[in-house]
Design a protein around this nucleic acid. Sequence first.
DNA 1: ATATCATGTAACTGTATGGTTACATGTTAT
DNA 2: ATAACATGTAACCATACAGTTACATGATAT
Lengths: 131, 131
Amino acid sequence: MRNRSVTYLLEATFQALADPTRRAVLDLLRRGSQPAGQIAGAFPVSRPAISKHLRLLRRAHLVREHREGRHRVYQLNPEPLRTVDKWLEHYRTFWTMNLTSLKNFVESEYAKETGKQSSVKPRAKNSKGEN
Amino acid sequence: MRNRSVTYLLEATFQALADPTRRAVLDLLRRGSQPAGQIAGAFPVSRPAISKHLRLLRRAHLVREHREGRHRVYQLNPEPLRTVDKWLEHYRTFWTMNLTSLKNFVESEYAKETGKQSSVKPRAKNSKGEN
DNA sequence: ATATCATGTAACTGTATGGTTACATGTTAT
DNA sequence: ATAACATGTAACCATACAGTTACATGATAT
């Protein structure tokens, strides 16, 4: 379903972005569309290797391809990156928060859930001996 | 420095984010730190499987771990996601640009239909045959 | 000391990835 | 038709990973 689609899209996208060569291909395509051979020429690996990278990028819909004579021109499609951006949204609040207050927040949440005292700050344990 | 390079960090991060279970773990930790066992309890896979996921998340520095008695409490570390956010920046302009061109496209279509002038310059076709 | 709990690691399996070279397919030029 | 070009795919190899079960380690409680 939709939820499944987003999950799958994110999976394919992150997977595609995990490889430095593929990220470099995207960076390259930011400057403009290019045929496969020209893309391959920009990297120190074999042409078939790039062909396979392009396949993964296609699978993630990060690039589109159209034929132009005997060339296959690849074009950047930023759409999936927007999905990544949206996914990041949940976490953005975390780093805008001051790191110290984040730490406190997280630890107090843990304390609430477990009823246990977090080991960091307060030493006021009950009658138990410390150290 | 342990921070080899942004490239390496991005690689480990995207790699870690590629798995839906690991993303779910992060989503869980957004609510608060938890010991490994409790995290594992939230998923339908075996505990060692989660343990390995946590190892990858650790490698990407997406979580931190500290011992608390016989528990190992895992805490979200959003820092690498900030790096991802920064990486996305290059592409963000891209999709806002796409939205802009889409807007222009829609407006020009509207103009064609109504004969109204829009902000998009009318294409002066050359002598080439048009159908 | 011993049992129990919490957790990581080893060993193993099946699958995917990243790389290579060799080959197939389709397009353009002669 | 044929040669040359652009590109993808197959076959193969090594490595990584996601999952499993069995085992090792370390902390608590008795």
